[in-house]
Design a protein around this nucleic acid. Structure first.
Length: 112
DNA sequence: CGTATGACGAGCC
DNA sequence: AGGCTCGCCATAC
């Protein structure tokens, strides 16, 4: 529906959403990882930005995207962090004492 | 068109 | 281990 589309052609953003949508439940991906799949390994910040300004209503598992440290990136407002963690735990992901995820186990291997 | 910004990442202390 | 700085890149203004 073209009339529902934002005036701006956020092509890069759509690509980000497309990748994120492929992440299966119980798995996570890092911002840098997604940026790599888009062909820009250094655009991790932009990926994060795409998610923070993500349109609601879309079926995008934004909570499955974390930083390379295996932690949930603090967002302005903060409370999303707890929500994100709860959703991930609900998918069976275990956090350690420092609130970190073991990427060796949960990191999505990509659209292989 | 130049400046500022931001769910990052790697490096250094 | 934890915290700070700098580099990167697509958008917003």
């Amino acid at each position: 529906m073209a009339f529902l589309r934002p005036t701006i052609s956020t092509n890069f953003f759509e690509d980000v959403y497309r990748i994120v949508r492929m992440i299966p439940s119980g798995r996570v991906a890092t911002y840098g990882q997604i940026a790599t799949y888009l062909g820009n390994p250094r655009a991790a910040r932009t990926v994060g930005w795409a998610l923070h300004s993500m349109p609601g209503g879309e079926n995008i598992p934004w909570h499955r995207v974390i930083n390379s440290g295996g932690q949930i990136s603090p967002s302005p407002g903060g409370h999303r962090e707890a929500q994100q963690r709860a959703m991930l735990e609900d998918e069976g992901i275990i956090f350690d004492e420092t609130g970190r995820i073991d990427l060796r186990i949960y990191q999505w291997t990509g659209p292989l």
